[in-house]
Design a binder for these strands. Structure first.
Lengths: 310, 310
DNA sequence: CTGTTAGCGCTTTCAA
DNA sequence: TTGAAAGCGCTAACAG
């Protein structure tokens, strides 16, 4: 017990003994056994985080903000990847719960019903990231993808665009992109307008795919048209297609997207997009974990970035 | 015990009892306590991974490959971020060892001596990623940054370049970039050449920084010159500076870099770079973890990508 | 300030 | 095929 007290710096131990214990621990290279310790304490400092993918910088930027806040505390982050699969997410959450984590962080508001039940029944401190359009299991922080899409639709309408196309990828798994598309269409409808053409692919988004789908959607000369993309990668591909074809932007083809990723700075033209506050979402999630925020929902606003393509 | 057997599907239990147990577990929403279980087993399925940063896609791409291999097994990944700080890395490794992980994954070959000792003494299955120029603690997989830089130097020399500049960032913490710079200089020296100008910054690399440092290095008209950059972000910024200034590429300024990141596809010109096999490194690290590889060192080659800028 | 006792929930081993 | 006993290394609670 005395050793335990010294090592945890808890309770009173004489200076003399403290030194001896510390020295001995150093000598034998003692490493605490968290399995035993946390087991005895019936709690851990682990936070289970589930994100859809590690190769989409949207999620790693959020993670980065989360980590920057968390890493000053004694909490540890354990990351799992759901590959956009709610069934897999459920299994991951179940596995994580077995470690009795201090908290769970999920991406998005759409989950398997069993996941929600599991988390609620076990009364786990849960935070959902990136989206706020829905009922959180416990807490959530993000932006309204509906509002973001509406803002973009309004911007295009105000700029006098009357014909619209949509270019998207992986909508069957990307719930946020799906919400944006629906809200965009709705806003157009409110103004007596509609999406005339759509190019979709189940593949993950990429510049190459954006380029291909844009070529497809423009093949029968429907210009002038304003294209709304599911995200920046797709839109960047679209821009490359247009410039290579000598298509006038934004006169013949306008380009608008979502995310506001940094790589857009590399493009020859500034693409109009909607910047999602990714790093900030992560930071706030971190502060939720540290108990610094109580609100059930934190809605961040994001920002419409008007570039040269609309 | 019978319950334990059913839940782990281990040993013989009658069908009748098995069903009853499974049903009861389902009803009460039983979740195994890994703290108790792993404690009793004296082992875990956790793999501790330490990477320098989550906001550098080099590391998340490696992680992605690692995860893709690992996630078919029963192993779990716990990620920590060292912020390029060896002291912090040591603390993270120590914290991870407290969980008695099935393995540890580190980035690079340069670590605090205490980290190496800790890992060796505890006989932990350790894998070092991305670099192979050095003595691994246990196993490592990566590419030779020396060779990559030498290949680029040779390419530039063969193309007739005779004057050289170097643009880099964060060399005090980026050991791989440092190795590349040294090897590049050495190769030049072997050919009676040298780096005439250097622009360095302690800031993390970014396109903006690359742009600024390139402006700086070119301010007193030293063209023609071949610039070697610490990585793609910096080089992309350099390219943007040159195109905006109407500088002829590669005639007046040649640009060469390292990594071969995907965002280069967005650039108006294909930058000459050296593609590091990031995803593959992660995959192989995963196979190391699963015990599918025994070699102490796996050296991957990478690829010189000759673009329009050299 | 130091020590004793009991127990965390599971698994390994042995016995029936 | 099932069960009983013991123990993993630590900490909370209490006693001295």
């Amino acid at each position: 017990m005395t050793v335990s007290r010294v090592l945890r710096d808890k309770g009173y131990v004489s200076k003399n003994v403290t030194e001896k214990v510390l020295k001995a621990a150093e000598e034998i290279g003692y490493v605490r056994n968290n399995l035993a310790g946390s087991f005895a304490e019936q709690s851990t400092n682990l936070i289970g985080v589930v994100i859809p993918s590690l190769s989409n910088s949207v999620f790693t930027e959020v993670l980065s903000g989360f980590e920057d806040v968390i890493h000053e505390s004694s909490l540890q982050i354990a990351i799992s990847v759901s590959h956009y699969d709610q069934q897999r997410e459920f299994n991951l959450v179940k596995d994580m719960l077995a470690w009795r984590p201090a908290g769970i962080v999920l991406t998005g508001m759409e989950h398997d019903e069993r996941t929600r039940n599991l988390l609620k029944q076990n009364n786990v401190n849960t935070i959902e990231l990136i989206d706020v359009d829905g009922q959180p299991i416990s807490k959530c922080v993000g932006l309204s993808h509906r509002s973001a899409a509406e803002a973009m639709a309004s911007h295009l309408i105000e700029n006098g665009h009357t014909r619209f196309g949509y270019v998207g990828s992986a909508l069957q798994v990307d719930e946020r992109a799906k919400k944006r598309k629906i809200a965009f269409e709705q806003k157009l409808a409110d103004n007596g307008l509609k999406i005339e053409r759509t190019a979709l692919s189940p593949e993950p988004s990429s510049m190459l795919l954006g380029r291909q789908l844009t070529a497809e959607i423009l093949q029968d000369n429907c210009q002038p048209i304003a294209l709304y993309y599911s995200n920046d990668d797709m839109a960047a591909g679209g821009l490359l297609h247009c410039t290579s074809q000598g298509i006038s932007i934004p006169k013949d083809v306008a380009i608008a997207s979502f995310n506001g990723l940094e790589f857009l700075d590399a493009m020859p033209m500034r693409i109009t997009t909607f910047k999602s506050p990714r790093y900030e979402i992560g930071q706030i999630a971190g502060r939720y974990m540290l108990g610094e925020i109580d609100d059930r929902i934190t809605q961040l606003s994001g920002e419409l970035l008007i570039g040269d393509t609309t």
